[in-house]
Design a protein around this nucleic acid. Structure first.
Length: 288
DNA sequence: CAGTGGCCCTGTCTGC
DNA sequence: TGCAGACAGGGCCACT
């Protein structure tokens, strides 16, 4: 599942291969891939064709390409989305959802998505210069690796919430880029339980869980940083890196790397939550 | 209005 | 062997 590190690898690859090129043709192959573009596929094609890509930007799990029109092509990979650079000669992939060609002899950009939770849209950019953000991304908080992310502001917002800590970490309006995998790993590193009521989290604990999220995402980023050179990013974003590094996610029944207690998996928010029952004891008042 | 649960989607795996 | 059901889960939307 692409979370912040995986999306950043894709962004860096696109920056290298697509920036400064001009779109010559767009082919939408599946309607769900553009369902977030309210004006429909023909309108999206019209807004892209003839436009030059001027940058590749990201906030959290959203990726966008500012265009010379003042708009941007916004992409979200969802559960299984991929953006690939492919020779025009290459055969269509089974899950090819959209294709973007350029007016030079270089390779094309393809959007693939098996489970179709992801999608493309063209949106107006709000703001100027590098700080500009597409309208559809404006409601998302800065991500934890953004140098401008404000830990104190996050802490104050956290304390006004009445929910569980993991829910808050997954809430992209508080901090973006963290999904189920990194939430579980960050909570384990910070020794905090997922059902900890947000209004009881103190400032050092909030700092701990943010630092933990940053550490695990930076490690994943460093490990995944070369994959785009092969013009391919794995569907799951799970390279061999995860098998070696994940302490609790997907490790139910296996010993906690810190204390040896078997890792527990619990259904939570219609998802899996993994934690060490000894390192991360359940709070007296648990908030799910 | 904040918080919560349901739903979308398809390929893989498990159990009967 | 075959089939039904569980599971994976980000984000949107309806409901309380």
């Amino acid at each position: 599942v692409p979370e912040l590190p995986e999306v950043e690898v894709v962004r860096a690859g696109i920056e290298r291969y697509v920036v400064a090129r001009r779109v010559s043709a767009v082919d939408v192959r599946h309607p769900r891939a553009v369902r977030r573009h309210a004006a429909g596929a023909p309108d999206l094609v019209a807004r892209l064709t003839g436009r030059q890509v001027i940058a590749a930007a990201r906030r959290g799990k959203y990726l966008w390409l500012p265009l010379d029109s003042g708009e941007a092509l916004v992409a979200h990979l969802g559960m299984s989305g991929q953006l690939l650079i492919r020779s025009s000669d290459a055969a269509d992939e089974v899950h090819l959802r959209a294709r973007i060609k350029f007016d030079d002899a270089g390779p094309e950009l393809r959007f693939l998505d098996q489970r179709t939770f992801g999608g493309l849209a063209v949106d107006e950019l709000i703001g100027v210069g590098p700080a500009a953000v597409p309208s559809s991304v404006a409601h998302i908080a800065r991500d934890a690796l953004d140098p401008a992310f404000d830990d104190d502001r996050f802490f104050r917002a956290l304390r006004t919430r009445r929910t569980g800590l993991k829910r808050a970490l997954l809430d992209q309006t508080l901090v973006s880029g963290i999904g189920n995998i990194y939430a579980d790993e960050a909570l384990w590193r910070a020794r905090l339980h997922f059902a900890r009521p947000t209004e009881t989290v103190n400032r050092p604990e909030a700092g701990r869980v943010l630092d933990a999220a940053r550490a695990v995402m930076r490690a994943a980023l460093a490990a995944g940083g070369t994959s785009f050179d092969h013009l391919y990013v794995d569907v799951n974003g799970r390279s061999g890196y995860f098998d070696r590094v994940l302490a609790v996610y997907g490790q139910a029944g296996r010993p906690c790397p810190r204390c040896g207690t078997p890792v527990r998996r619990e259904a939570f928010m219609n998802r899996s939550s993994h934690h060490c029952p000894r390192c991360q004891p359940r709070p007296r008042r648990a908030r799910w």
